[in-house]
Write a protein that binds this DNA or RNA. Structure first.
Lengths: 218, 218, 218, 218
DNA sequence: TATGAATGAGCGTTCATTCAT
DNA sequence: GATGAATGAACGCTCATTCAT
């Protein structure tokens, strides 16, 4: 139970930044090919062409490497979403959702092995994952998108809807990209994610009652 | 990486069965409190009041313990679903979905810490997780349920729908039970899962086009 | 550094004797196929179709099993030599040596893998190996043979000669049977052993001086 | 079973080389006093005044330590032989054999306990022992020596003779140095080895027949 | 700053041996 | 006698981390 470790120093100089990138690349590569258990700092350093000592200059411990990778991924997702939102201002909600899903799928399919590990073998931190800054930003963007299209949306509680939509997207995109079920094409799976999100959003309005769920028989 | 390890021998005698249960309980407890990395076989054995040797009589290695726990969980989920399906034959689809969601939520909230670990720190096996027998059974049940209520369902491809529904349920239930977002009651979250599932199922029929879905055509 | 362990009880009853044999067979088989490191008492017991407990009724510990196997081998060698000595009373020394060598080679080639392990991985006992009763008998037989043919022998010190001959035989037979060098037929190797023994025995008489070796230049 | 393990990295710096030597010395010492079974890497490291980790930087596993010791011994034997061959160019075959035997005996008697273990408890590698480079060199030297003195030698097949001579020397030297039989002086034993080798080499020429040698025809 | 040799706590696993049944 | 589940000391080996150079 450790707090999420932060990079030890934010390297201002260009060379340092490159070193950090190289180390992170190496980490990603090892993680993808060897899995979490097979990943160790000496191997990472060697792969990065750096000494272990140097590695420890930029990352206080092994978990910080993983955390940085998670962070990098979150940033990428944020970029992906921003790109979609900033282009084609006239698009409908569904078009935007579809574009986001497609972009996310694409991003995950570049390094499926890595993402498989990142999804699964996140070291046990006690802080919930969505507290990274990028994650909060993603939440804000989505929240804003839903707000913008509120006319097309059945769900009243926009905060809850944002949360649910992001969770659905994440889990279905991961499933489609990282453990694709046999028998379906990527396009089918992609469409299914959009269907799920839009279905949820467009569903007949249900209040979110403060009391135990209605008829749900035991 | 590794094949999913199987229990070493299935104990026939009652005493042995109890030993196995005790070991599994201890594993669950340690896993919940220490995380995967902090879990070690000697500690498990000690906690179970058993010698390491005994532990290794029933489980070939550490991962087999985790796998058994996963399996146990899958069985429990299957039971939960079966219970719902076998009772109240006249229930609507939504009532059934709600009942299943409620039961799953309930099950996960009994030992959230454990399930948090089980969800995240699944040791890196090469077989996708949902190939356990119980998981296949769950798939069959859900598939059957959807078939039974096909009149109420917009999605044409029932196989795909089954897959999507299970994924949505799993991810949202996990989120609600294991990392509940601040600001929402359990009932709200529970209802949100039902909304998501029903929204997806009831959404206007969409074809599953074979071509890249840029415009996400209606 | 343990003393050579003895079988725990000499089983008088037939059934016990059979059990002991079975256990020994199993030990030999496991030893031959798994090597010393891969051999363990549980596996032996299982292979013998006996419980570990029973095994420990007849052998006080693991080493006793190995010792018994060595002993069995020594007995077999003694039998082999006795057979040769008891047949064909008119044979020459060389004929007898040849017959013994041939018989020894034959015996070792039946289970080369086993003998390889027995030769090499003898657990570290502090008693020299040739103190087994059978080994002493073998020594006596050979000593007697040399005495009988003393006219044909150049070496004066018959005790020393006995020792040397047995060592040569053993080492060359082992080499020929267990690690045959490439490029030579079994017959060539067999003949070589005979040559070596006869060459040594027939060599021009050299006294065994009590002083440091003669000309042997530094 | 296992391939012969190689040293993990050949240390270039002086300090590293010393570390390796220290570790090897410690291994030899522990091996001599505790036997193979009683030897463990932690003890070796402790004895060497080094951490286990360091030990594993230079040797991939326990057997590699033993293998290195074997190798060191082979090298020493090679040196011994080379010394003899390079000095005293006018020596007779017997003088040279005697010198080699004497030097080998001497070398083995420095650490008899160690050599006892090295001879006996060679870990079960699948490669025959005499395939080390040094061993091949030794073979070449001996072969060359016999070639040089072929006029004094009865054996026609020089390759076979080389092999036999080396085997005789090794086994008798081991016997004399490591398990000396009671009743004989070292000098007697030393002379006996020389007698055996010279006797074999000087024996009347025998063909190496391709047919089974029952009657051991002259 | 960078290096990489050294550290050593700690973990997974084995297996000879015992003893209650 | 026979059984075989249980024991637990002990060992091989790893790898995150440090620090003298």
């Amino acid at each position: 139970m450790t707090a999420i470790p932060q990079p030890r120093k934010s390297p201002r100089q260009l060379r340092s930044q490159q070193t950090v990138d190289t180390i992170l690349q190496a980490t990603a590569s090892i993680l993808a090919t060897h899995g979490y258990a097979g990943t160790n700092t000496n191997l990472i350093a060697e792969t990065a062409g750096v000494s272990v000592g140097s590695l420890y200059q930029y990352f206080p411990n092994k978990n910080a490497l993983i955390a940085a990778l998670h962070n990098r991924h979150d940033m990428q997702m944020l970029d992906v979403i921003d790109d979609v939102l900033n282009s084609n201002p006239a698009a409908t909600l569904e078009e935007r959702v579809a574009a986001i899903v497609q972009a996310m799928l694409h991003a995950h399919m570049l390094e499926p092995a890595l993402h498989r590990v990142l999804e699964r073998e996140f070291p046990l931190f006690d802080t919930p994952r969505d507290h990274s800054l990028a994650d909060q930003d993603i939440h804000r963007r989505m929240r804003h998108l839903l707000e913008h299209h509120k006319a097309e949306i059945g769900q009243q509680d926009r905060d809850l809807a944002t949360y649910v939509v992001l969770r659905i997207m994440e889990s279905l995109v991961h499933a489609a990209a990282l453990e694709p079920p046999a028998g379906f094409s990527t396009e089918q799976l992609e469409q299914a994610v959009v269907d799920a999100v839009m279905g949820y959003l467009g569903a007949p309005k249900r209040a979110a009652p403060r009391k135990p769920a209605k008829g749900a028989g035991r």
